Simulated assay, not measured.
Amino acid sequence: MHYDVIQVGAELARAHRAQGVVEGKLAGLGFEQRLELAAEAWSQDAVATAAIEGERINLTAVRSSVARRLGVGNQDGANAPRNVEGLLDIMDDAVLQRAAPLSHERLCAWQAALFPTGYSGMTKILVGAYREHAEPMQVVSGGFGRERVHYEAPSSAHVPAEMQQFLDWFNATTEHDSLVKAALAHLWFETIHPFEDGNGRVGRVLIDLVLARENGEISRLIRTSQRLLDKRRDYYEQLERAQHGDLDVTAWVLWFVEQVRVSCEEASGVMDAALATALFWMNHQDKVLTTRQRKVVKLLLDAGPHGFEGGMNTRKYESVGGTSRATASRELIELEDMGILGRVGAGRSTRYYLTIPGWGPAGTVSSTTPPPPEPAPDARPSYRR
């Protein structure tokens, strides 16, 4: 496989700048905040890599397991199923044991962890070993009678030799940039397709391993699988084109590096919200809130800059806080008077937003934001929707 270094170079530079921004912003967060962000990113990425394969796993159970592993957040939730714990095990191994060489045994252990019962759904499969069946290994989509073969992998007889060549390359020091190596490693592994099942998930953990070798545990914050899930159709199409074309994989590498860059930019946005949250609590540390008020404020903070659609109103506060309409109205006004919430609209259209710059619509009014001056008698007033 080869690629055009000049074409890829510009996108690599952008991706590495985005990585640097993530590292810089991370330095401004406290240890607990870093762990909380890493835990959420890891949880979301685990759910995403399973979802790419059409498997739905419970995010709440994943969060509890990740919290116990990192020693942060709510660690008292339900245990995840064994196969989900296995997925978290191999994702953790890729980060914590990033310096260890990749081997046949390690890869086979990863795949076995995904199928602790020896079954994929209702089908018994070979686990902890490369495929051995005589039939061609095909990547297929579509229902029965409408199947489409996207790719046919090398025969099982050739897999051990192909994998040895892959491992020799992966463990050797190469001239490739780390992001390029991640792109090539994922493509090469998926092309060999060495296991009866689990190749996609194991192949994406290889991406985690390469990024962890470059960035350490910071790599947990970069949700590459989430991005690949968001671009799932493009992801499959790009892989298919690279597998069916000649040995020039420039288009695949360019596309992959772009996805990592976007993942870094999204992680940067998450950290912006975390920094804003930390500054918000620091600015309001002297305020005395009721349990309900603190719950509502935390809900708004957790939703992020654009996450709580329509803002907070009396009806929503009443539902979230489990209180009366009168109490909800009074406590919202108290939060406004404290400068914690800003108000938009009036009457039944009144909505409240956190007084964090950029987190509410234009025109938010609060005790920290004075209302606009009254227009002069001859002036035509302007209105905002």
Rank of each mutant, 00 (worst) to 15 (best):
H2S: 11
D4K: 02
Q7I: 01
A10D: 08
R14P: 00
R17E: 13
G20K: 08
V21P: 00
V22R: 03
E23K: 13
E32M: 13
A38D: 01
A38P: 00
A39Y: 02
A41S: 14
D45S: 12
V47A: 09
T49E: 01
A51Q: 11
T60K: 08
A61Q: 11
R63Y: 01
R63H: 06
R68I: 07
L70I: 04
V72L: 08
A80W: 01
V84N: 00
E85Y: 00
V95S: 04
R98D: 04
A99M: 08
A100V: 03
S103E: 09
S103K: 03
S103F: 03
S103W: 03
L107H: 08
Q111K: 06
A112C: 03
L114W: 06
T117C: 01
S120Q: 13
M122V: 07
K124H: 06
I125N: 05
L126K: 12
A129G: 11
A129R: 14
Y130V: 06
R131L: 09
A134T: 14
E135Q: 14
R146K: 15
Y151M: 06
V159P: 07
V159C: 09
P160F: 08
P160W: 10
A161P: 00
M163D: 04
M163H: 08
L167G: 03
H176S: 06
V180I: 14
K181Y: 09
K181D: 09
A185S: 14
H186W: 06
W188H: 15
H193W: 12
P194F: 11
E196H: 03
D197P: 10
D197E: 15
V202S: 08
R204K: 05
V205D: 02
L206D: 05
I207T: 13
G216I: 03
R220C: 01
I222C: 02
R223D: 07
K231D: 15
E237C: 05
E240H: 14
R241P: 01
D248K: 05
W252T: 05
F256H: 09
Q259V: 01
A267H: 04
A267E: 05
D272R: 07
A276Q: 10
T277Q: 12
A278M: 11
W281N: 02
M282C: 00
D286L: 11
R294D: 13
R294V: 00
K295T: 15
V296Y: 02
V297S: 02
D302K: 10
H306T: 13
G311F: 09
N313D: 15
K316V: 14
Y317I: 04
V320I: 15
S324P: 04
S324C: 03
R325M: 06
T327Q: 13
S329N: 10
I333F: 12
L335F: 10
M338P: 00
G339D: 10
G339Y: 12
I340T: 06
A346V: 13
A346Q: 15
G347F: 10
S349K: 15
S349A: 15
S349L: 14
R351P: 11
Y353M: 05
T355P: 07
P357E: 11
W359M: 07
P361R: 12
V365D: 15
S366Y: 10
P370F: 02
P370E: 13
A376Y: 14
A376R: 15
A376M: 14
D378I: 11
P381A: 12
